[in-house]
Simulated assay, not measured.
Amino acid sequence: MSARFWLVIPAAGIGARMAADRPKQYLQVAGRSILEHTLQRFLDHPALRGVVVSLAADDPYWPVLAVASDPRIRRAAGGRERADSVLAGLEALKSEGAADDDWVLVHDAARPNLALEDLQRLLDSLADDPVGGLLAVPARDTLKRAGADGRVQETVDRSVIWQAYTPQMFRLGALRQALAQALRAQVAITDEASAMEWAGLAPRLVEGRADNLKVTRPEDLQYLQVLWSEPR
């Protein structure tokens, strides 16, 4: 049986590289916002206990979404950085009764194409893991390390390189402590796994699908529009 879990979605960013009139998580594709597609991937799962979405204080788009009234979802105040938003989400879960040893999944708001089988694989693979881990994909292309002059310094061994995706899955108490300590130390935290690594732990890599893309640029949205043009 898969682990029961809580979910935190950090969604306070503006997605400047999309050059759109609103944060990228609110752009429409296949009749709904990206954020609604993202949330639905988890709301359909029977092991879900509850969700916190961390949003900007002045976010005018969330309240008008139909999903905003879902009783399983609570809103929290997003922060300046991703780590601040995730930590706020974890604090909100604590106030909802989540325990330190409960599993929490953190997932990007603009990563709406998570395969349900990948979610299940993550839950099953990490159910008894002492640390937790994340969905990831082994590097496929030849990788180059660049110098300051923009020229190749070396070719990197791709056999040991993985692309980190989300969801990332850790115990609430351990992740909360790692994020809080890293923020106090002013450590650059790019994802939840990096906070756990900084705390001296080694998250497990769980291989997922490469099409679990994060919408970052206009062409990503175009890709989803084509991908989802057929019945899903």
Rank of each mutant, 00 (worst) to 15 (best):
M1V: 08
S2L: 12
A3F: 02
F5Y: 13
F5W: 05
V8G: 06
G13S: 11
R17H: 11
A19K: 11
R22W: 04
K24P: 02
Q25A: 14
Y26C: 11
L27C: 12
R32S: 15
S33H: 08
S33V: 09
I34E: 07
H37S: 10
T38A: 12
L39P: 06
L39H: 05
R41L: 06
L43I: 13
H45S: 12
V52T: 07
L55A: 06
A56W: 07
A57K: 13
D58T: 10
P63A: 03
A68D: 07
A68T: 09
R74A: 14
G79A: 08
D84C: 08
L90E: 01
E91N: 11
E91V: 12
A92P: 01
S95T: 13
S95D: 09
A98C: 11
A99R: 11
D101T: 04
D102E: 07
D102L: 04
D108E: 15
R111S: 15
R111H: 07
N113I: 00
N113V: 01
D118W: 06
D118A: 11
D118L: 08
L119D: 03
Q120Y: 03
R121D: 12
R121L: 15
A127F: 00
D128Y: 02
L134K: 11
R140L: 14
V152W: 05
E154P: 01
E154I: 01
T155L: 15
V156P: 01
V156F: 04
D157Q: 05
D157K: 00
D157T: 05
V160M: 09
I161T: 08
I161V: 15
W162R: 15
P167A: 05
F170G: 07
F170A: 11
A174N: 05
A174P: 00
L175K: 03
L179P: 06
Q181A: 07
Q181E: 15
R184S: 12
R184F: 01
A185V: 00
D191P: 02
A193K: 04
A195K: 08
A195F: 09
G200H: 07
G200Y: 01
A202M: 11
A202Q: 13
A202V: 13
R204V: 14
R204W: 00
L205H: 09
E207A: 12
A210Q: 13
A210G: 04
D211Y: 08
N212E: 09
P218C: 05
P218L: 09
E219Q: 12
Q222D: 14
E230W: 10
R232D: 13
